[in-house]
Design a protein around this nucleic acid. Structure first.
Lengths: 242, 242
DNA sequence: TAAATGTTAAATGTTGACAAAATGAGGCAA
DNA sequence: TTGCCTCATTTTGTCAACATTTAACATTTA
């Protein structure tokens, strides 16, 4: 019987933890589609572990929001509605703004040259990516930018929630919906945030971040209303059972 | 063998869910102290269920932050450091501010007379409680105020995270630390928030909320530095294993 | 005496089996 | 045909037993 392929660099903590990571990867990679039902025995067989272990992994993922549980019916990959996405966007933005404020506040206390340098390098790399119209590079740099801020805020709990939200938002994919961000504007907004942080002005950092988040949501909603055709979004979280 | 006493009003969904609620209640009530180890067999015996069920409940609570898991060693009630509390305070405040902004935004769209009336009644009740120096009533009203805002924001995910944070913050209790809020100031800040919401000004609501949260944290830290004696706070999350 | 090592008891990690609930197919009557 | 009921099958919920790891104690040795 095939055993779960060697997990990357992670020394084994518990089997259930490995199974959890594996299922999470499948979900985020889209191999398990939103709305799809997770069959405990099937997963147990595929991964070569017992059902109880799979069960434990599924429960854990449910608490993180990637999976929805229904008593006596089972587990389903969370299917996000447009409303859900907007809510997640709001929440993620609020945490990001808090992170920016926290970094700025910390910077006002003791200067962290390394972080500022890293943020400015990120800005510079982004401008280069913009010049050569390199979208993939921009995406990665954008994620790195937000990660650096959250890590710099030195608030592990907030970073944990934030990362969870980012994962959950990955669940939302609409056929043919290509988000084309306004890279130039985004870079300017990032620059404003970095400036406020470097100035140690937490209020300004929060405002700049809030503005960045709001304009991002506006662009997203615009793309959505442009791209979405007659096809309506599902009202139920567990519409499709396979 | 004694079975778990009838859960209050909760119709039974799953046994593990009941066990989870029961353990959570014990933790929040302080019957299980921060740092204390949770023994699976002992809990299973006390509650009259199998160890696997207790295990499932514990894992679920761990994901919510009330419990810390250590592989092959077990589960411990999360013991918060002062830093943890500050981080939770920041995060909770950010979500609250977002909630205020969301409510105001919604109010600008379609007027919700019932919510405004409820908020103003809460303010009025708070003033009365202040006049007769009724602290317990103030506490309840304060919690109700924040709950109403979060519920009014119509962002279930945010409300879920917020409620989780509130529970987690309950874990922090210091011997002889009596938080004496500035009720008068707090009421004024609440009034500002309500006014911004009623005006449908999401930016003003966010600012008022942020200000409220920050001054609340300041008061808390002040109380902390006044009340804390030589006794130092634990650096490790799982210092005491019992 | 104190550090290191071997041994034992207890707790957690994992599994397979049984019980209860939900789904779906088939038959029967209107 | 349509609607409803019954029953078999599938799937989840719960439990008890086995395997592995950890922690504490006893023993040995420098």
């Amino acid at each position: 019987m095939m055993t779960v392929s060697k997990i990357i660099g992670a020394r084994r903590e518990t089997l259930a933890g490995e199974v959890r990571s594996e299922i999470e990867r499948w979900i985020l990679a889209g191999e398990l589609e939103p709305g799809q039902k997770l069959n405990e025995v099937a997963l147990a067989n595929v991964m070569g572990v017992s059902r109880g272990t799979v069960r434990e992994a599924i429960r854990s993922l449910a608490d993180s929001g990637l999976i929805v549980l229904v008593a006596n019916r089972g587990a389903f990959v969370h299917q996000l509605t447009v409303d859900d996405i907007c809510n997640l966007y709001d929440l993620r933005g609020a945490i990001f703004a808090m992170g920016c404020a926290a970094v700025a506040r910390r910077m006002a206390g003791e200067w962290d040259e390394a972080l500022i340098a890293a943020l400015q390098k990120n800005l510079e790399d982004m401008r280069k990516a913009y010049d050569r119209d390199d979208r993939p590079a921009y995406y990665d740099l954008n994620i790195a930018f937000h990660d650096m801020i959250l890590a710099g805020a030195q608030n592990p709990k907030a970073k944990g929630v934030y990362d969870g939200l980012v994962k959950e938002m990955h669940l939302f994919r609409r056929r043919g919906l290509s988000v084309s961000p306004n890279i130039a504007q985004s870079i300017n907004e990032h620059a404003n945030i970095v400036a406020a942080i470097a100035a140690g002005d937490s209020g300004a950092a929060r405002r700049a971040a809030t503005h960045h988040v709001e304009s991002g949501l506006d662009r997203f909603l615009k793309t959505l209303s442009d791209g979405s055709t007659a096809e309506e979004h599902p009202k139920s979280d567990i519409a499709r059972s396979n």
